[in-house]
Structure formats: C-alpha cells, structure tokens
Design a binder for these strands. Structure first.
Length: 480
RNA sequence: CGGGGCGUGGCUCAGCUUGGUAGAGCGCCUGGUUCGGGACCAGGAGGUCGGAGGUUCGAAUCCUCUCGCCCCGACCA
C-alpha cells in the first residue's frame, strides 16, 4: 500500500487513529459495504493471537466451542422484553430468501442469547446437565449509525460465551471468573490496563440482571469498554423455558451468563500504545517480533551480509527484509509504522565488528549487541518492552484520573473533552447507581463507566447528584 | 436519522465558478547508478472523473436522484 504521512495525534486524534490503522496495514474501510471493514493480514494476525490467548483460557476453565446459526427467527428477539427493546433499532433483517418473501423474517444475529436459549431448553432437563459452558467465535451485525474501524463497525468479529447454571451464586462466580480472564488478557498480553467493575443499571446489557465490564483508557483519555460479562439471571431461562429438575426434584429455571470481547480490542490496542510514527505493538501480540534489515553497498558485500542476516534471523526467530530496490531507510520506516517491536540493522560494519544493531520501537533507542548475545538480548528487550508499555499505559491512566466531589467539578473536567481534541479524564466521584444520575451525566455526554469491584479510593460518601449514601466512588468518563 | 465536509489513475490532490472530452506529485513497471533513517537518472504503463438519469452539438464541470466515506450529534462490543 502507499505509505502516507500520519496525522499527529495532538492535532486530530480521530484522524491519527485512522492513519495508524491504515498505515499499520491492519484494516481498511470496505467502502462498498456500509460501515464494514476489511481486516488485512497484519490486523487479522493480531486477532488470531488474541483468539488463541482467550480460547486456551476459556478451555482451561472447562468451556467448549460451538456454533449457532447466523440467522435467528425474528420472534425470538421479542421473547425477552428488554432485549428486543435494546436491540431492535440496530437489527438487519432478512425478509426475502430463495426469491420468496419469508413467512417469518430472520434477523442477522446481533448477539445469540435468544437462539442459545432455545437450544439450552432442548439440552437441559436435569441438574446433572448443568453447568453448560459453551463459547462461539462468530461474526455479528449491528446497524450502528456511526462507525469507526475496529471500535464500532456494522459487522464485527467476537467471541460470545454462554453458560447455564443451577443457581445464581455459581452463575455470578462464572461472570467474575471470565471478567478476570478478560482483564488478564488485556493487561498481560495487550499491555492495556483496565478497571474491572459493574455497569450501572442504566448501562447494563439489554436483558441482563447485571453487567460487568473492563474499562480501559485510551491515549486521548476517553474510556473504551473492552469486554463485558453479564449475569443474565433467569431472564432468558424464563423467556425460552429453560428448566431443569433439581436434586430435590423441584423444577426451576436455569441461571445464565453471557460474555464477550470483540475485534474492538484491536482498536484499544492501537489507542493504547501507538504514536505519531505509527503502530506500536506489545511483543506478545506482534505477529512479527523482530525484523533484520540487511545493509550493503557493493555487490560483494551483499552475499556475506545476507548470509549472516539469515543465520541470525533463524537463531532468534526474526524476519529478514531482503526486498530489492528499497533503501534501508525506507525499510526502517516501513516496519516502524507496522509496529514491529524490534528492528535490527546488519551491515558490513557489523560483520567486521561481530555486532548487530537493535532498535526498540517504543523508545526508539538503538543499542549495539555482539552477535553472539543477540538471541538473549532480544528476548530481554522484548520482555522489557512488554512491561514498559504496560507501565506507561498504567501511569497515563493514573495521571489522568482525578477525584471530584461535586457534579460541577465533574462537568468542568469533562465538558470540553472530545475524541478529536482529547484531554479526557477518568473522574472518580460518589454517584448512586440510579438512572437519574446516569441521565444527569449524559447532559454533558459523560457516562458512569463502571463501579469498580475494588475500591482504591476513600470508601463511602454522599452521592453528588442525589445526596444519598453510596459505598464507593465510580468511574465517570467520556467514552467510545 | 439531523448538520458539515468529500468522492477525479494504486495514494494525495488540482481542474469545476466562466461546459470543448483529463493533469501534478507520490506509488507502480524496465534499465542503470545507489544503499548505516523515506535515493537518483532515463524510459514506460495506468483514469474517461462514485453511480444513474437529465440539459446540451458537446458534461469531470450545469440540474435531479442515488451510493459511499470522513467529522459533529442521538445509539452502541
């Protein structure tokens, strides 16, 4: 693809984001299909790594993968009142198939709780059948009015876990266990710090009893909901008649959960670490961890340089960029904007000295390393970079988190914030989980991101909207 | 869906006001010289101007409709 300049993030954050995604060769707008994108090899490879990290964790916890139909009878959506209300505006519906108008239209799944509920009812009769722990990797469609690559597209890829349990306690444990998995992958693999918490009742998933989320802070200070885990209670069990007979012989509805993360994570990744030079990938998620750029002037230098480059590349698991007709400088820029964690330079000088030059993507620091030590040193550098990226993101989140003790304070901090200009903050304030409070914040386009599970502040206080007692501060921010 | 901006070789854009049948830079191809942070020279390929309709002798340019993209708002993983 053509390599163009990247708009500085300080000038226009939204344009910067778009440029980084494009220049990093992660994806491009589909253009011919409204609101959709094409995920390119460099982007899909990251998704595959995320899939692997998540999938192995799900399986270790006893979940199995399944696949449900893309099309769901329209009537299914209507069985759970809140659910249909929440999703109706963004449904794509199939009304004609095989040249004939369908008697009952199908909706393209926006999420699968309903069709899963239908089958759970067939699969579950006894307490012995529980728990049911399944997950599917799938695409879903939600007709959003405004889209941004990875962050919100009409069609997106995700995983959706669906489980059924014999009691509420067990379901809640499942919900929190998965929230931990999400937080672990976000922090340890993506180097993206998150806050685990409960969504307010106003912000919960349509049809859930309670929703839990992990919230991350992007470079512009906006919040990104990076994953959700829902306690569905018995709502879908009742809607789809999913009953089981307990040990004691009683009939009861199952307690269900559902949880998901999507390709949105890639958007979060971009907005957590990348800079004005382009993409920055944490080593654990980088499809290519290191590239060797061979340098030679004369034809007689080429052979020995390439030979050494391939020998070292094989030893350390790097890729050699031996494209002809490109100067080393052009290659450095190429890999830099694609986010490769370490680029190595190897030329006649290094051959003579027995060294090689290593350059870290995040800091831009170059170091000269004896070729004999390069494997060990590369591993150290990648490890350090992974940790440093996390710490830098954590520090940024910390320094952009403020405590406020009145609504006016919250409004003053957040009122001027936009995705383009940046300057976003997380504001910790005492606010009650009451739709009145959510509505009040919405007046200046802020939301309660979540009520943290762990209170790292000063405990209880008076709600800054209603004056009632609440037991901890909540995270208020503007978000994607 | 409301407001704003925009669709012209692969990319970024000029041309449109004052209609006459398409340009630049970058990229691409070939050859040569280069090569430690975006190389240079020479030659070459590539578009009928988002799409449809209309006005006209003639439309990238004017009119109507339509599709899509970006930004702002309402909705959201």
């Amino acid at each position: 693809m053509a390599e163009s300049p990247i708009t500085p993030g300080s000038k226009d954050f939204a344009a910067w984001y778009q440029d980084v995604v494009l220049q990093g060769d992660l994806a491009e707008p589909a253009e011919i299909v409204k609101g959709c994108m094409v995920i390119k090899p460099n982007g899909y490879a990251i998704w595959e790594i995320l899939q692997r990290e998540l999938d192995t964790r799900f399986k270790a916890l006893g979940h199995q993968n399944v696949y449900f139909p893309l099309l769901i009878p329209e009537s299914f959506l209507k069985r759970e009142a809140e659910h249909v209300e929440g999703f109706a505006p963004e449904l794509a519906v199939v009304t004609i198939a095989g040249g004939k108008k369908l008697e009952e239209p199908y909706v393209i799944r926006p999420t699968s709780e309903t069709i899963v509920g239908h089958f759970f009812a067939k699969w579950i009769q006894s307490w012995r059948d529980l728990p049911v722990l399944v997950n599917q990797w799938a695409n879903v469609v939600r007709w959003e009015l405004r889209t941004r690559m990875f962050l919100r597209t009409t069609e997106f890829l995700w995983q959706e876990g669906h489980t059924a349990h014999s009691n509420h306690q067990e379901a809640i444990e499942e919900v929190l266990r998965i929230l931990d998995v999400y937080a672990e992958v976000a922090e340890d693999i993506m180097a993206m710090p998150v806050i685990k918490g409960v969504k307010t009742r106003a912000e919960k998933f349509a049809g859930a009893l309670r929703s839990y989320s992990i919230e991350a802070m992007m470079r512009n200070g906006l919040a990104l909901q990076a994953g959700t885990s829902h306690d569905l209670g018995q709502n879908f069990g009742k809607a789809f008649d999913v009953k089981f007979q307990s040990k004691e012989g009683q009939l009861d509805y199952v307690w269900q959960t559902s949880w998901g993360v999507s390709t949105r994570l890639i958007g979060g990744l971009v907005m957590s670490h990348s800079d004005d030079k382009g993409l920055v990938l944490p080593p654990k998620l980088a499809p290519v961890k290191a590239v060797i750029v061979p340098i030679y002037r004369k034809e007689e230098e080429k052979g020995p340089v390439l030979e050494a480059a391939h020998r070292i590349a094989k030893e350390v698991g790097a890729k050699v960029d031996e494209r002809e007709g490109q100067t080393p400088g052009a290659k450095f820029f190429h890999w830099e904007r694609r986010g490769v964690p370490v680029v190595m330079e190897l030329g006649p000088r290094d051959l003579a000295s027995g060294n090689i030059v290593l350059k870290r993507r995040d800091t831009g620091v170059k170091e000269i390393v004896p070729q004999a030590n390069v494997a060990a040193r590369l591993a150290e550098v990648l490890d350090a970079m992974q940790k440093d990226l996390f710490n830098a993101a954590k520090e940024r989140m910390k320094s952009n988190t403020l405590v406020a003790n009145s609504l006016a304070e919250v409004e003053e901090i957040l009122s001027d914030v936009t995705a383009e200009k940046g300057g976003g903050k997380f504001v910790m304030a005492h606010i009650k989980d009451d739709p009145i409070c959510d509505a009040r914040l919405k007046e200046f386009k802020a939301t309660i991101r979540n009520i943290p599970l762990v209170d790292e502040y000063d405990g209880g206080g008076k709600c800054i909207v209603t004056g009632e007692d609440v037991d901890r501060r909540v995270v208020v921010a503007k978000s994607y």
